[in-house]
Nucleic acid binder design. Sequence first.
RNA 1: CGGGGUGUAGCGUAGUGGCUAGCGCACCUGCUUUGGGAGCAGGGGAUCGCAGGUUCGAGUCCUGUCACCCCGACCA
Length: 587
Amino acid sequence: MPIRLSTLFFRSLREDPVEADVNSHKLLLRASYIRRAAPGIYSWLPLGLMVLDKIETIVREEMANAGAQEVHFPALLPKEPYEETGRWEEYGDNIFRLQDRKKADYLLAPTHEEVFTLLVKDLYSSYKDLPLQLYQIQTKYRDEARPRAGLLRGREFIMKDAYSFDVDDAGLEISYQSQRDAYERVFQRLGLEYVICAADAGAMGGSKSEEFLAPSEIGEDTFVRSQAGFAANVEAVRFTPSEKIDSSNIPAAEVHDSPNTPTIATLVDFANKNVSRHPDGEFTAADTLKNVVLKLVNPDGKTRLVVVGLPGDRDVDQKRAEAWFGVDVEQAEAEDFEKHPGLVKGYIGPTKNGKQFLGLEAESKIEYLLDPRVAEGSHWVTGANEDQKHVFNLVYGRDFQADGIADIANIMAGDPAPDGSGELELARGIEIGHVFQLGRKYAEALGLKVLDENGKLVTVTMGSYGIGVTRIMAVLAEENQDEKGLIWPESVSPADVHVLAAGKDEKVFEVAEKLTADLEASGKTVLIDDRPKLSPGVKFADAELIGIPKILIIGKGLADGEVEIWDRATNNRQSVGVESAVEQLLS
RNA sequence: CGGGGUGUAGCGUAGUGGCUAGCGCACCUGCUUUGGGAGCAGGGGAUCGCAGGUUCGAGUCCUGUCACCCCGACCA
């Protein structure tokens, strides 16, 4: 049966609702796909559900192709499994928590690793049962601090989450690849541009993880890529330490009085006015070694300080720092400096009076880590650990040492890719999928073991694979639109053809109905604008807003036996005979 | 949690302490109109976010509070 605009639960808005500021959100609201129910929580109207269903169908088909079986868990779960893995605490305020009448704790699941693991544990106990892939398409709940951009970051959202279970790492690798391949097929069928980015796998485990990012200005993730194909989330980029360079012609380090130079800019200015450079040339921020004091905050609240030396033209990228250290990272505050009087703010350096200072300073026990760009043998202008003094020609390896590296500096466009594949460019993206080798973390915590062929218990190794279904709809809307409205790809459009009866003649409506029936009989789905007594302008505008890619206009040309096929994307209109319209639309 | 902003009908908005809170869209009735968001006439719909205060009188001023939006922090 066709979708009839005369009775469809639909009302287009002529103006943008103020609550929306990104185009996809505005258009989905204006065209009656969704309505806001609460911050980050949306109600689905008929048109919205149709698109959602199309996306889910594609996901289901490709999950089946990958050999995954569909199950369905409750969204409402008891807290116990999440306590066992520590996530009841770990997730903090991000979980929606509630209690039943007996005061037992429940949560609205933000993710389902635990219950999938327990379900497999419940049913299976032999290596012969593996490998296994399960998935569900389920509503997830996360009490995000700041929901954004309509469906893009909601507090309630639909996710396809799949999990693989294998006896060994080789099996996991195969399962991972099969899901990864399925993701590529899903996104290709949806007509979505995507970049597969190496992702930060988290501090524990060090397992493999990749994100599928849809490049977009409104994206929340920053990634880097090179022409030759390297791509990674900025958090996951790891640079190799620079090769040792010759320092035999660098003069001995010398300390200069450098009054009022607590920042890199003032220091560079001072150096250019007062110090001759060897060899000749201007000092720049890149010649200075900036030493940043960071406070690492463990989940239990304990903190420790580290000092990181990095070229003065770079800053610490907090997200990269947290990925590197695996804990929260904060800037050191005034009270931290008070506790460590050796750290002279604005004049921190790795040496004092010509001797190694940081790290070797027994009482401070502060680790000194270096950016991988700092090569052994390179010479620097840096703090002398005395107020108003800097040291010049300080050579790494000759004059100071480090306790290790910290690859946490911000990445700049033009930086070389770590794999030597050329210069990096920075771009924004929306995470639409994530494939992740979990390893044995959850299996271990929840005791998922099977007997191997020798009758020995082995812990199962797992992978988890997510696709943001509702988010994909937002991305598709964002990527497929113009100033008039949405332009859905055929694969997810609410219908194949939008039949538009423009006019008042009964004949127009008769022919529109006839062509609708013919199209449906030929296997096409149709939305028909059969609203009577509505001026054509309104119908044209609504057709553009709704965004079905093919529009069939029955109107003024009918007197000559002609109708028009209007391509929403190209705006091309072509008159065809009534009899050949269906055939044209089928091709 | 920090910074900024906004709350008036379903949506978009106007409203110097002073009459019955105004307009456009949408909605209802009638007539006319029908290829780019029609016209005319008539109509329904608002406890002006909430609470308290000042005042003869508060949408408007004051205090408090709540909600939402944006930026940041945060976010397998």
